[in-house]
Design a protein around this nucleic acid. Structure first.
Lengths: 197, 197
DNA sequence: GTCTATAAGCCGATAGAC
DNA sequence: GTCTATCGGCTTATAGAC
């Protein structure tokens, strides 16, 4: 009734975000989420129909902030297009050195719930990556790159590959390697654009 | 006592392989593994100290067969080096169209157990990828590519990226996109080799 | 080495009061 | 909308017989 500065629902999602991202979906109980949010489990179930519902809300809450961050990194980077793309990977490497970093929440959820392909959370993850792909394709199209769609997909493969590889080896330098590969591919596409004229 | 054609231990690992790969580590109980292996849980605990121990055995059992398959795909492919590398991705796309395909067991385990960085199973996964990396680097070195190490890492990023992306979108065509990117990078490295002479 | 049986605790989800 | 209390089931792991 008394509306607090952050709503109960927001506090629950925030707690779920920290716990699910940190320890994985099936590694976290709703008891733990409720306790961290400072509510009882009954209240949690008032706001969310089920654990699956909360998992979907957890990823939905990461969608826009994540996209905004990538765009910001790109826009603030100096240099030509290949260097600006590479800069995304450099910033990612920096964030991956933070001790709490545990890869991409969307990819990890799809890996953990691979036996439930239609799970709402997986759909949210897929949509998130599609949005990033669409933004990157737009950037490449405006640069006059012929097959912008193919190139953006390739960059996304490198990006998601670096999430997976860095998580496995705990070595963020792979993100810099991925950035160099991305720069090579963008460079090649730009030269292709000129050659085809 | 009576040694069966397949030992009890092997049957347990085989059951664990199917279940863990299919439904994820934390999504599978040892009750289910024991039942599928046709033994009691007490027998399972005779052969494996803990669930973590069994998880490690599950991934260890996938190491060599997986590497052998990639090598076979490469060796049987026609054409020059870039085409042979691309053929690995084409074969992977074909296998990803099988209904039981659920990504890379090593990567999915590291994603699910991201909160346990020192877990034995993660070490086995990291070692597996390092072996593949070393083999690919050797191939590139023998082709006279200058920075074979950098190139093999880039190809692995595309490979692992395609595992993650295809699992999320359930669209194996991303593996063909990754294969084309890999071919581009190998092509570029070969041209670099000539240019530097 | 394999069995039956069970400990001890955690899980998602719900009942009913206020 | 939030609380206390609890259900029925499942989980890892162990005890003790043969």
């Amino acid at each position: 009734m008394a509306r607090s500065a952050t709503s109960t629902r927001e506090r629950i999602v925030s707690a779920a975000n920290k716990l699910f991202y940190g320890d994985g979906i099936r590694g976290v109980s709703l008891d733990a989420v409720a306790a961290k949010a400072g509510v009882t489990k009954r209240t949690l179930y008032y706001h969310f129909r089920s654990k699956d519902d909360l998992v979907a809300a957890y990823l939905a809450g990461r969608d826009q902030p994540n996209l905004a961050l990538f765009r910001k990194w790109f826009e603030e980077a100096d240099g030509a297009l290949p260097a600006k793309v590479e800069q995304i990977f450099r910033n990612l490497a920096r964030s991956a050195r933070h001790p709490k970093w545990k890869g991409c929440g969307f990819l990890r959820t799809s890996a953990e719930l691979a036996n439930m392909p239609g799970h709402p959370a997986i759909k949210i993850g897929a949509a998130h990556k599609k949005k990033f792909d669409a933004w990157l394709r737009e950037v490449f199209e405006q640069a006059g790159i012929a097959d912008a769609s193919q190139l953006s997909r390739q960059i996304l493969l490198l990006l998601d590959g670096s999430f997976a590889v860095v998580l496995l080896h705990r070595d963020p330098s792979y993100m810099e390697t991925a950035g160099e590969a991305a720069r090579s591919l963008v460079d090649g596409a730009l030269r292709g654009r000129v050659a085809r004229r």
